[in-house]
């Protein structure tokens, strides 16, 4: 289980803007460690977001996304509901956090 995400979600009445910071190493599998050996790949490859039980974001990520990634997206909706964001990495580790839209 990974570290907590920071999720901010705000509505301007029409659109909701969601900003997410995730804590993850995002190892590409191409980097060499101090011992000269390749560091095994470990990156988030699936990100989903639900708003009030409805899927509003579905992402397939690869090794080109940075360490501790920042994600921002917008969809139609008003304040008050809950946004739930989940990531899963290639080892199967997963983390889910939620935030109330302000």
């Amino acid at each position: 289980m990974g570290s907590p995400m920071r999720i901010r979600a705000a509505s301007d009445g029409e659109m909701i803007e969601v900003k997410v910071l995730m804590r993850h190493e995002m190892e590409t599998g191409r980097r060499k460690g101090p011992d000269g050996e390749l560091v095994p790949a470990l990156y988030i490859n699936a990100v989903t977001a639900d708003y009030e039980g409805k899927r509003v974001f579905n992402g397939h990520w690869g090794p080109a996304v940075s360490k501790n990634p920042f994600l921002s997206f917008r969809f139609k909706g008003a304040a008050g509901g809950k946004v739930t964001v989940t990531w899963t990495d290639i080892s199967g580790d997963t983390r889910t956090d939620e935030a109330t839209v302000s």
Partner: peptide, 10 residues
């Protein structure tokens, strides 16, 4: 909003 330092602060 995009500064990962927030995660350290948390």
């Amino acid at each position: 909003d995009d500064n990962p330092a927030v995660l350290w602060s948390m």
